[in-house]
Design a protein around this nucleic acid. Structure first.
Length: 569
RNA sequence: UGUCCCAUGGUGUAAUGGUAACACACCUGGUUUUGGUCCAGGCAUUUAAGGUUCGAGUCCUUAUGGGACAACCA
């Protein structure tokens, strides 16, 4: 496995190589994955995780997991736990213990004091509205705050009182004193601290002032000795500020640290036929369009996991899409390709009929049962074989029969021969219909000389069908998933809400699906403990975590590629 | 009428001044006891115009198109 995960290089590798050749940071490379614990991770995060951990591994410095928890009103321990689980499941281990921005609050505070003393930060009494008004626009310079030139002593006093809780939310902020006329909006005296009287999931009530992202992030990188701080494109305009804070603190520090982090931006992942914004995903969950964050239709890591995706397939996907700076929309077909490719090699094949129609082999002795040998995976001999019961009455897929079928149809019709995979070649002799014209039973005769493995079975027959013995089949429940949205870019329409494009058929449940009795003997053995199978000719399915022994539920991960359904059109 | 970023096939990514590669998707054909897999083949002269150069997808200029930035979010 390890060996075919070849390293694909990208511009970030090149940047790091360049830094290394200049002997920056003493040759150390340390990356970090820094989610805010305010939601579940999705496939876009997976790209970032694979990038950061991949780089950490490649350059042998490893990767930190850091929770960017600077906004107590949005963050919860539940999310911290799910994020750890998802990163691990994807197959990555972070260095040491997970880190938290909140671990650095005290240090951040001390540095803020340093900046105040250097005349680089000040306390502003104005309201959010006033500050916003003075900010100007990208083309119009901003105005300086009336509090901008407060004395250091006054700023120090006010900042300390902010920390002590003497002010209500919004009454004071600490701002960096940079340039209200800067063409870069982020340099117009950005906020460093705001007052939030709220319980923080880790620090509780210890703090009532919280650092803003821009002030916390780079410093967190610095504290941890991160060499390359990789983030998405929208932070590009924040980079001058990232560097301003770092340089300002560095100037005030007595000795120069070994590692000075550098921010590099790449384009985030967009996938067609889905949405990726946390806000919209949260809305899907809250308004019950899906069953939860791990609904198999969600693009979340937990959703993909429940859907049956393997960590390997997601890593492969991340590798395949590459890393660059240009906006991109990846075809979800590539994701599906990656999971098929993985499961084709690893998932055992079993027989299951989802939409059954009864077939009676009229010349097969009643009560007789033959146990047929079935290969578990033709791609991997080491997976062995199992026994499969055949009898006089079987189910086949309703789709596999067509009356007066066209020549291109290779399946069952009256007067045609087909092969029952791993059993016999049968000839269809007739059908029985109910009053409404629905087929209730198909009659066939079998050719006893064509049992699989026999000389007679070598005969060429156009179609090969899967089947299950009615008497022996187990009944399971199957959930078939289709894409959640019918539009390629559900959130790409100005005049329409993304919910307008929800696919009403994204979930269809088959309560009674028939599966061969000993499917578990086929030996599904995946490291994450999820049992995954290929239902012969149908697709890949996995056992849902809500299954019980008496109520087995399968989720369809993805169908097999199907050139027949294309040809039909 | 700002600053910054980006521009290679239907979709992504590569080509690091030397004649467009790989993957997905799509289309042919072959093999096949899964209409799966596998195999073989097809599918772009790189947004435009100018310049530098023996030579430009790559460097320069301009244009055009797309994106980011004005949260006490990250």
């Amino acid at each position: 496995m390890e060996s075919n995960e070849k390293i694909k290089t990208n511009f970030i590798h090149q940047e790091i190589d360049k830094d290394l050749s200049e002997n920056k940071n003493g040759g150390a490379v340390l990356t970090r994955f820094p989610p805010e614990p305010n939601g579940y991770l999705h496939i876009g995060h997976a790209k970032s995780i694979c990038l950061n951990f991949g780089l950490g591994k490649y350059y042998k410095g490893g990767t930190n997991l850091r929770f960017d928890d600077t906004n107590p009103v949005k963050e919860e321990t539940e999310y911290v736990e799910s994020i750890k689980e998802d990163v691990n499941w994807l197959g990555f281990q972070w260095n040491d213990e997970p880190k938290f921005s909140s671990d650095y609050f005290e240090q951040l505070y001390d540095w803020a004091v340093l900046l105040i003393k250097d005349g680089k930060a000040y306390v502003d009494d104005q309201s959010a509205e006033e500050i916003a008004e003075q900010k100007g626009t990208p083309t119009i310079p901003g105005l300086e705050s009336p509090n901008r030139n407060r004395s250091v002593e006054e700023n120090l006093d006010l900042f300390e009182r902010m920390r002590k809780g003497e002010f209500k939310n919004g009454e004071r902020v600490l701002r960096a004193k940079i340039d209200m006329a800067s063409p870069n909006m982020h340099m117009r005296d950005p906020l460093m601290y705001r007052i939030i009287h709220a319980n923080h999931h880790r620090t509780g009530d210890k703090w009532c002032i919280y650092p803003m992202y821009d002030y916390a992030h780079g410093q967190g990188d610095f504290i941890e000795g991160i060499s390359h701080s990789i983030c998405t494109l929208e932070f590009e305009v924040h980079r001058p500020l990232y560097e301003w804070f770092l340089n300002s603190i560095l100037e005030a520090l007595p000795e120069k640290p070994a590692t000075i982090p550098r921010q590099i931006e790449f384009a985030r992942l967009n996938l067609n036929y889905t949405v990726m914004s946390k806000r919209k995903l949260l809305q899907l969950v809250n308004e019950k369009y899906v069953a939860g964050w791990d609904d198999p239709r969600m693009p979340t890591i937990s959703g993909l996991r429940r859907r049956g995706y393997t960590p390997e397939s997601i890593r492969r996907f991340a590798d395949e899409i590459g890393v660059a700076k240009r906006e991109n929309v990846i075809d979800v077909a590539l994701l599906e390709h990656c999971v098929r490719e993985d499961l084709n090699i690893r998932a055992p094949r079993v027989y299951a009929v989802l939409d059954p129609v009864k077939v009676v082999i009229t010349n097969y002795p009643e009560g007789e049962v033959e146990w047929m040998e079935a290969i578990n995976n033709p791609e991997d001999e080491s997976m062995g074989s199992r026994k499969l019961p055949f009898s006089r009455e079987i189910y086949i897929e309703r789709d596999d029969f067509m009356e007066n079928a066209p020549k291109k149809f290779f399946r069952m019709d009256v007067g045609r021969e087909v092969r029952l995979k791993n059993a016999y070649i049968v000839m269809c002799e007739g059908i029985t219909k109910d009053a409404d014209g629905n087929i209730t039973e198909i009659q066939c005769t079998y050719d006893p000389d064509t049992k699989s493995g026999m000389e007679g079975s070598k005969r060429k027959v156009k179609g090969t069908l899967h089947w299950v013995s009615i008497e022996h089949a187990k009944t399971v429940k199957v959930k078939q998933y289709d894409r959640l949205f019918m539009d390629e870019a559900p959130d790409g329409h100005k005049d329409k809400d993304f919910l307008d494009f929800l696919n009403p058929d994204s979930l269809s449940v088959v309560n009674e699906c028939y599966i061969e009795p000993n499917y578990m003997d086929a030996g599904s053995n995946f490291a994450d403990g999820i049992a995954r199978y290929q239902f012969q000719r149908l697709g890949y399915f996995c056992i849902d975590k809500d299954s019980t022994e008496s109520n087995v539920i399968f989720n369809r991960t993805v169908t097999l590629k199907d050139s027949w359904s294309k040809a039909k059109k």
